[in-house]
């Protein structure tokens, strides 16, 4: 393998129903700075059916070029059709780095592609950098347990690949004046050769906000005591327009459904504000929320490990503090009219 043949930073542009996923735009932002350091072009690649027009958006968010594969068989994401396209592109154009969003489809695709390209893949990265001299991608992620990060390297294989958690990197402000090149590729795909069919896609609107995308999360733990006290968590969330989360204990006690579990065996979340109420801060919970921007912890036990990761902590009784907080927000609303919300 001649490493000099491999050049450029690539970002998988995930689109659903013609809409680009936020994480792909974030990765264009992160990829831009990697490409600048390496002094190579940044490329987006996008697959789908009738998605050519999205290329300009990819350029506006920082790409120098966009590879497009537009084909009816690519209408919905499927591992077998999408991986064919990505492998075709990677083998023809030989990027040195490929980044994917760590979404269900992004992770699925990257895992399959890595196997066929016989290369390394780092999962759920939260920090990205490059060693310019060695042209090495430094993909860091929380190591198993502990407040410790591991930097994963792929020294002897190309392309170097990583999936990156949504809401960790920052998208650039779009610039519609940016220039870029659109390269359209054709590949041969036949529906009758596909072994899987997407029969129906259902957007689930029953959940008010997807936890992974929430800007504010109020998360309760076993320290709330019982199901009745846990209603305070719901009430605070409703007052400030937040989503509700819970720890593994809370979910196992049946106070919340599993999809609202935050932590290693639940959702990984990175909201702007995270309330950890009655949560001791067990490691498997902390790995799922510690990248939140602002963490407010409320707990009786001054030694609870949650205070180590909290930006602000209140040692006290949640049964007193939470109702007071709700009261404050409610009176603010009455005073000023309207409602408290995220904009």
């Amino acid at each position: 393998m001649n490493f000099d043949d491999y050049c450029g930073v690539w970002v998988f542009i995930e689109q659903n129903d013609g809409k680009i996923e936020g994480v792909s735009l974030e990765l264009l932002g992160a990829g831009r700075s990697l490409a600048d350091k390496l002094q190579v072009p940044l490329s987006g690649f996008i697959l789908g059916d009738g998605i050519r027009s999205l290329a300009s958006q990819v350029i506006a968010y920082g790409a120098d070029q966009v590879y497009v594969i537009d084909h009816p068989v690519l209408k919905h994401y499927r591992t077998e059709s999408y991986m064919k396209g990505v492998i075709h592109l990677a083998q023809n154009y030989k990027p040195e780095i490929i980044l994917y969003g760590a979404t269900p489809n992004g992770k699925d695709l990257a895992s399959a592609v890595a196997t066929d390209l016989n290369t390394g893949l780092t999962a759920d990265t939260t920090m990205l950098d490059v060693d310019v001299d060695k042209r090495l991608l430094e993909a860091s992620r929380p190591a198993f347990g502990g407040n410790i990060m591991a930097t994963i390297l792929c020294k002897k294989h190309r392309p170097q690949m990583a999936t990156v958690r949504p809401k960790v990197m920052k998208a650039l402000a779009p610039d519609s004046g940016r220039n870029g090149k659109v390269i359209e590729e054709n590949i041969s795909l036949k529906e009758e050769e596909m072994r899987t069919k997407v029969l129906q896609i259902v957007n689930d609107v029953t959940k008010k906000t997807n936890l992974a995308d929430a800007h504010v999360i109020v998360c309760g733990g076993k320290g709330m005591g019982d199901l009745q006290n846990f209603q305070l968590i719901h009430e605070l969330a409703e007052t400030i327009g937040a989503s509700v989360g819970g720890t593994r204990d809370v979910v196992e006690a049946g106070w919340l459904p599993h999809e609202q579990q935050v932590g290693q065996t639940g959702e990984t979340v990175t909201p702007k504000i995270y309330f950890a109420i009655g949560i001791s801060g067990a490691i498997q919970h902390v790995v799922g929320m510690k990248n939140s921007e602002l963490i407010i912890a409320i707990n009786k036990d001054p030694n609870a490990p949650i205070f180590d990761v909290a930006t602000y902590g209140i040692v006290g009784d949640a049964m007193e503090i939470v109702p007071a907080l709700i009261e404050q927000f409610k009176s603010l609303r009455t005073e000023k009219g309207g409602e408290v919300s995220y904009v």
Binding site: I148, C154, T311
Partner: peptide, 15 residues
């Protein structure tokens, strides 16, 4: 193909 390069403690949140 992947190896652990280094381990480090991430920067703590603001306070």
């Amino acid at each position: 193909p992947t190896i652990v390069g280094k381990m480090f403690t991430p920067p703590r949140p603001e306070g």
